[in-house]
Write a protein that binds this DNA or RNA. Sequence first.
DNA 1: CTGAGGATTGGCT
DNA 2: GCCAATCCTCAGT
Length: 195
Amino acid sequence: MFQPIDVSFYQQPTLELARSLLGKLLVKETELGTASGWIVETEAYIGPGDRAAHSFGNRRTRRTDVMFGPPGYVYTYVMHTHCLINVVSGESGHPEAVLIRALEPCTGIGLMYERRGPDKKLQALTNGPGKLTKALGIEKEDYGRSFFAPPLYIAEGKNIESIAAGPRIGIENSGEAKHYPWRYWAMGNPFVSRL
DNA sequence: CTGAGGATTGGCT
DNA sequence: GCCAATCCTCAGT
């Protein structure tokens, strides 16, 4: 179907990777079929110094363990009733990651409607971190997979003309870190989670 | 074993 | 805008 991007792509500084991921295609193959979308919004989390990161203070638990490994692997975790997905970044021993917050649907849109419900506007399918995982069929069991081979991988997509940056969403209790402009999105794209 | 706390979402006021 | 849903994960007893 699509060609996964090589491992070396993930070996760049986390803030650069967060921007480089915009426009790339996130693909998930399941028994029900394949669904994919262009990444249009990301957030960088750079432990151990980032109070908003799960790995703040080098906190290593069963949940954050994959963040301490090499880049290019899948970090999923459950938030309330939803699953969120991150791309592990940074060298081994540096627990950093990029949260994927929104997609623009590409292929398998019918499948996305089956998973998200039929009475949705197109943009409501994938314009949030918990929505896009449900639309693509990504689950916490994907934790620890790599992003450079099926069934879950990232491929080349389309060029993003203009990238906007601003504070990250939903981290009010993170002290100074809440001001860091580590959220990136494709300017003007209607599928980003918030303006 | 128990309790508290979320990198959210969708429905209702 | 407010708030409940709902379920891990983690830390403390």
